[in-house]
Design a protein around this nucleic acid. Structure first.
Lengths: 194, 194
DNA sequence: GCCCTATGTGAACAGCATCAACATTGGACG
DNA sequence: CGTCCAATGTTGATGCTGTTCACATAGGGC
């Protein structure tokens, strides 16, 4: 059995240090900002030597990228859950957008990390690599493609994504006061107009 | 006369170290990322001791904030220029949006810095403190208020801002391929639908 | 012309990421 | 069952960083 715990261990080897480090890193991200996550601190939280991390990640960037990947999976899960809860379709798509913004507000550091480091990959829409992105694209296509064609669907998806992403980031950065009702209204404006 | 130059100085005092540091900082931002700007490095670029910065800024955060302020002014100037060039009105408003995204793509590090650190101030729409924000609000109000009322104008402005900001950030982070024509189309979609 | 204050310097400290050499161990293979 | 190796963790060191403190310099007000 693999014990992923932050308590002291008795054996020289940890068991699953990589998972434990990611767990600790995620906790650190939500406590402090994502910028203040340090390798040494994460190692300390797990109760392991600072340089042990290098047996599992080539450098700090790779560690943060792993955290971002874990965060992206959580974001995707939140969107899927929201879409399902709304019963799919157009209502589900709008719920997806709201979930996107709410996830950002609930996990500021993690959300920023997901989109912070240039992870390359200018997202090929036709072969979306990530669950969250695939969900977005598929929903957009399903909603729009039949009436207006695939090209319009892409544009609609990008438009929707940019809207919710921008709203999330602006609220996260304190440029726009966080207001749950406002989120609904901004997103709904788009819906009404389409 | 104040000489703001990065060359060696002969006098013990610098003349206008604060301005020189900001200039050097802006240059460093566009060379490396905004995260990699260091006090020591900026001081080195100006040819001054590392700790001299503390005579002009209380700490690194304040220095970065000053850089962000300078960046915001440039962003505002770019938007105003674009709006004027398009002749104001609806065309000017859309030009503002395009200028916003293009500025972000042309100055990635600077743009990120502007919106990175939580600078507080959840932006009071009725007393917009920054030029860029005031421009955005005034244009939105001018375009929409007369037909639909002030409340709708706020919503329209926020919607527009979130859209261009989201598009800019997504392209900046490599999530969406940079495509000049695509920018126009996404922004125009909004115009068409309103 | 003197002095005070603003401004710049140097050495020092703690914390950071990272590297190199060494220690420990679990498991593969005889 | 025993041996050895590769994976994993540790210790020490290096050069970077932001920041503090005591000190140096000089320009402007009296």
């Amino acid at each position: 059995m693999i014990t992923v715990s932050t308590s002291k261990r008795e054996s020289y080897h940890h068991g699953d240090l990589r998972a434990a480090l990611i767990e600790a890193g995620l906790k650190l991200i939500e406590e402090r900002g994502a910028d203040d996550v340090g390798l040494r601190e994460a190692a300390r939280a797990v109760g392991v030597s600072a340089t042990a991390i290098y047996r599992h990640f080539p450098d700090k960037g790779a560690f943060l990228q792993a955290l971002a990947q874990a965060g992206l999976e959580r974001l995707a899960a939140a969107q899927i859950a929201a879409s399902d809860a709304a019963g799919g379709g157009a209502a589900g798509f709008n719920a997806t957008g709201r979930a996107y913004v709410r996830f950002a507000l609930a996990n500021p550091g993690l959300f920023r990390l997901i989109f912070s480091t240039a992870k390359g990959d200018p997202l090929d829409w036709d072969n979306a690599p990530d669950d969250a992105m695939r969900l977005l694209r598929d929903n957009a296509v399903r909603l729009v493609a039949k009436e207006r064609g695939a090209e319009e669907a892409k544009l609609f998806a990008l438009h929707s994504w940019a809207l919710v992403h921008g709203l999330a980031v602006l609220m996260l950065d304190g440029m726009v006061a966080v207001d749950d009702a406002l989120i609904d209204r901004v997103i709904d404006v788009r819906k009404v107009e389409c």
